[in-house]
Design a protein around this nucleic acid. Structure first.
Length: 447
RNA sequence: UCCUCGGUAGCUCAGCGGUAGAGUAGGUGGCUGUUAACCACUUGGUCGCAGGUUCGAAUCCUGCCCGAGGAGCCA
């Protein structure tokens, strides 16, 4: 992992040393190493100084004694300020007094580039408006750093999960000719002399690729011009949408369960440090084991009635309803067979109860809300034509989709997983905006 | 689109009709195996914007702008 370099310090001292990372520091105990990073915090200015160095993999306390590194080097680093770029060389020690158990006793400091202005994000509380306006710097903070590491792990987990199960990655287009689901919440863009829209879901395209490959998924950005501003909403977010030919609602529910169990288990296994930085309570995550409870819409509605929760049967569940239902269970809950009237036009009807759709929503615990929505798709051409007319959708735009029913229509099912909601849930963050590097919300598109 | 809350120092906030405040960050000096370090001194303001009421407005009224989180909608 470490490469050997010849380093030349401020005072022309030459050492053969090794480049270490904070994350792997325990492998270098009692060895002399070089760390390359940024000054996270500087304390002291007498005979001894403590400087916390951030190198992208973590933060470590370094001890710099004036007599060792020189008064001049110490003064320059202190004046360079928080977030100045710094190369530090010294010996790794295990020490109980150091946060994290390891520290580096510096013997050589090299200032790469000073912070030319006072760093705006202090180690104190800030308002969310301020932090979001400084998102490009906020990303360096420990908790934000941890959240994005978890996001990276979840993304890799998604790819590994589907790869291991022989799903083919067939990404959907981002420019689309019209609404996938017929709502008006689309971002319109100029497409030469025509109009196009940013994709709202890759699902219809996945139905096409599933007929070509059997088991497929897409994983990419999605755009919704909804005028909603809650902790669960972004206008640009990432969605993973698997689709399987010759599959039913039950198959989709099995896959959804397996995926969530896998992703949470993987985060627990591989993101222990990040979850600790975030002070995430691990107990609710450890309970995320199959089987998850599965209830019908009718059962969920009855549960709400039992709890004295105000709810009108036949309506879709709102966020407070979902929270009330999920509080009844200790792990994600699958709610299936909603009234067809509140769901998208392409949902297959339940043959046993034609007013219901063969669909499923997965509600995560701890108030995060819906992380997965999906179901079995309608296969009958005449029924779909009827639905497109009933929803007042332009039929021409869906001719290609209807072709999928004209040429070997088979039962198929799939779902969409919201990445940021999943990451926010696992990381224990209140708001999905922390689960994406540069969040886009109703009133904010900078930086 | 609707409802609620907010906008005062770089940042977090108090002040709510009578001289613009604290903590923190920054600066200077001191001390220190510190760890939210500490001690002393210190710089720092069109009180979101525009009108109005008043002898007097950060404070009360009206309008506007900006933000937050909740509803609806959704992942």
């Amino acid at each position: 992992m470490a490469e050997f370099i010849r380093a030349e310090g401020l005072y022309g001292r030459n050492f053969v040393t090794r480049i270490a990372t904070v994350r792997a520091l325990e492998d270098f105990v009692d060895q002399r190493v070089e760390l390359r990073g940024w000054l996270y915090k500087f304390r002291g200015k007498g005979k001894i100084a403590f400087l916390h160095l951030r190198d992208g993999t973590g933060v470590v306390q370094c001890v710099a004694k004036r007599d060792e590194v020189g008064a001049e080097a110490l003064r320059r680093v202190k004046e360079a300020g928080q977030e100045s770029a710094l190369i530090l060389r010294g010996t790794v020690r295990a020490d109980e007094r150091a946060p994290g158990g390891y520290e580096v006793v510096a013997d050589d400091l090299e200032l790469v580039a000073p912070a030319t202005e006072e760093y705006p994000i202090a180690l104190q509380d800030h308002g969310i408006d301020f932090l979001l306006s400084k998102r490009h710097l906020w990303l360096r903070s420990r908790k934000q750093h941890a959240v994005l590491r978890i996001r990276s792990e979840v993304c890799q987990g998604i790819r590994d999960f589907f790869y291991a199960r022989d799903f083919v990655l067939t990404d959907a287009p981002i420019f689309t000719p019209s609404a996938c689901e017929g709502t008006t919440n689309l971002f319109e863009v100029n497409y030469f002399d025509d109009k196009a829209y940013l994709t709202q879901s890759g699902q219809l395209y996945m139905e096409a690729t599933a007929m070509a490959h059997g088991k497929v998924y897409c994983f990419g950005p999605t755009f919704r011009a909804e005028r909603s501003k809650t902790r669960r909403h972004l206008t640009e977010f990432w969605m993973c949408e698997p689709e399987m030919a010759y599959a039913t609602l039950d198959d989709a529910m099995d896959l959804a369960e397996e995926l969530l169990e896998y992703l949470v288990g993987r985060a627990l296994e591989r993101c222990g440090r990040e979850l600790a930085v975030l002070e995430r309570d691990l107990e609710p995550l450890e309970r995320v084991r199959r089987p998850f409870p599965r209830i019908t819409y009718d059962e969920a509605a009855a549960l709400l009635a039992e709890k004295g929760h105000e709810f009108r049967y036949g309506d879709d569940f709102g966020a407070p309803d979902e929270t009330a239902i999920s509080e009844h269970f200790d792990r994600p809950v699958l709610i299936h067979r909603y009234p067809a009237a509140v769901k998208a036009f392409y949902m297959k009807r339940d043959p046993a109860a034609p007013d219901k759709a063969l669909c499923v929503d997965v509600i995560a615990p701890e108030g995060v809300g819906e992380v997965i929505g999906g179901g079995e798709r309608a296969t009958d051409l005449a029924y779909l034509e009827e639905q497109i007319a009933a929803h007042r959708l332009p039929k021409e735009a869906f001719e290609w989709y209807l072709d999928l029913r004209r040429f070997g229509s088979v039962p198929h099912a799939g779902f969409g997983l919201g990445l940021e909601r999943t990451v926010a849930w696992i990381a224990g963050r209140e708001h999905v905006r922390e689960a994406i590097p540069f969040p886009r919300t109703l009133y904010r598109k900078e930086p």
